[in-house]
Nucleic acid binder design. Structure first.
Lengths: 256, 256
DNA sequence: CGCTTTCTGCTAGCTGGCGCACATAGCTGC
DNA sequence: GCAGCTATGTGCGCCAGCTAGCAGAAAGCG
């Protein structure tokens, strides 16, 4: 078969298996078979809004090769990313936590694929299946750690460091070393000026850690990126590793 | 009986009822009676560390008239508050979320009283009692909202606004309008310089919103404080009101 | 009462990140 | 190959908050 075009994979390609999502993959065969008929395959294009702040959440989403950002948007339009979720997790914890909704927005940050489950199906299963419940609660705790480190990082660290953290968190949720993401979008996620991201990215490029051009960022020296990031990244990574089921194909990286 | 000394209430005073804690008060009589024998009364002096980052959490704590801060302490000693919990909640969610511990520290921010429950007792009950489980998960979601707003506030708002938010969050968890808290401690909580707090507090005092002297802050005009705070406070307050059981004696305040 | 400790106030200079305005450089489509 | 859009680069003034050092005032203590 001929090489696929780089930027736009053929839409007719078979979707990834639900088991690409680590939570779904971690379920017992019994539970998995029970949920499978209710899992609906969905494409998640860049910028798609899964939930609006305070809006009804009809489904939970299990990304397989996409990344979803949880954002809070202020009254004046400014925004800040709270956390990101990829194939290691799920989007829509408010459904099983009991609040039904949250005051934040979920937006696709990296296009890809996922599966979704109707809220009613998930809630019924959550309340009756201890295995699923424990898995989802542990994921929620990992997510909480990510949120708290975001708060700390926002308070104490420079844009450079935060950009490193953001790149690494994204990279961990993608195959390969490439991100399709403009500086403008990164700035929205970090809640900083676009120019601030330009300057930070220029520095990283000058140091030979990344290469970028027009919405395409390639990490060329992950090790040095990890040496430059603040401790927040490692804290989050450790908690995810500790709390979530390991995946055989997970990338091995040296974290100090 | 003679007037009590102001700063140090007689230690022999009868402790508040467990039902001063809103979560315990919201339980059905059945569940409450079941837990009551395991509830251990504890004094919580200012500065007491309930959990160390990553350390074992042997109990969950239900404050009755105290306030506990969740803090993250960076490697260089800088810190930032993640959330606060008073009589409306509990400290130690990691126990029922399944992670057993968290990378943050829990410190008593306002001295008072509370009850605690051994981890094993709580976990057993959580896993077998849907009522308790739903209550605690809803509280956890409210706490998550507080954490996310902390992240947003850290990113976008001035020290003045954050101080207002912090004062209001504390006030909501105390009787009366007085806080026993030095600017130094507030600065640690907010993760800013002590002088920054001095300046912000001076402005608030000059505007007639608060009065303070040596570790004693009195809010004299709560309404105007609420007018000056950023939206983060109202978002958190709304979520707590929405997600947690109402308390008859809760203070009625006008939130825009 | 005098000494020490703790808390608050003030100064001066520095810097990271902001707002704004504008220049340039790749893509895309015709 | 040109037009037009989108993405990035840059400069400049500004300010909140930081570092650092010190002074004064209140509370606690022997």
């Amino acid at each position: 078969m001929a090489e696929m075009p780089n930027r736009k994979p053929a839409p007719a390609a078979a979707p990834p298996s639900p088991k690409e999502n680590r939570l779904l993959a971690a379920l017992s065969e019994d539970t998995y078979r029970k949920l499978l008929p209710s899992l609906e395959s969905v494409e998640l294009p860049l910028g798609m809004v899964l939930y609006e702040s305070g809006g009804a959440q009809a489904h939970v989403y299990f990304p397989t090769d996409s990344i979803v950002s949880l954002l809070y948007v202020l009254a004046d339009g400014a925004s800040a990313e709270i956390a990101v979720t990829g194939a290691e997790g799920l989007v829509g914890i408010a459904l099983f936590m009991g609040g039904e909704t949250t005051p934040s927005r979920a937006v696709v940050q990296s296009a890809g694929h996922g599966y979704r489950l109707r809220a009613s199906v998930l809630k019924r299963e959550f309340d009756t299946n201890a295995e699923l419940q424990h898995l989802l609660l542990r994921f929620t705790q990992a997510l909480i750690t990510q949120m708290t480190q975001t708060a700390v990082c926002n308070r104490h660290h420079s844009i450079d460091q935060q950009l490193c953290r953001w790149l690494l968190l994204s990279l961990d949720r993608l195959k390969g070393d490439d991100l399709l993401m403009t500086q403008e979008l990164i700035a929205n996620m970090l809640g900083v000026r676009r120019e601030g991201v330009t300057e930070a990215a220029s520095r990283l490029q000058a140091e030979g850690l990344i290469e970028y051009q027009r919405g395409h960022i390639r990490v060329v020296d992950r090790t040095r990126l990890e040496a430059r990031v603040c401790e927040c990244y490692a804290v989050v990574k450790r908690e995810y590793d500790r709390l979530l089921p390991a995946l055989a194909t997970v990338r091995i990286t040296a974290i100090r």
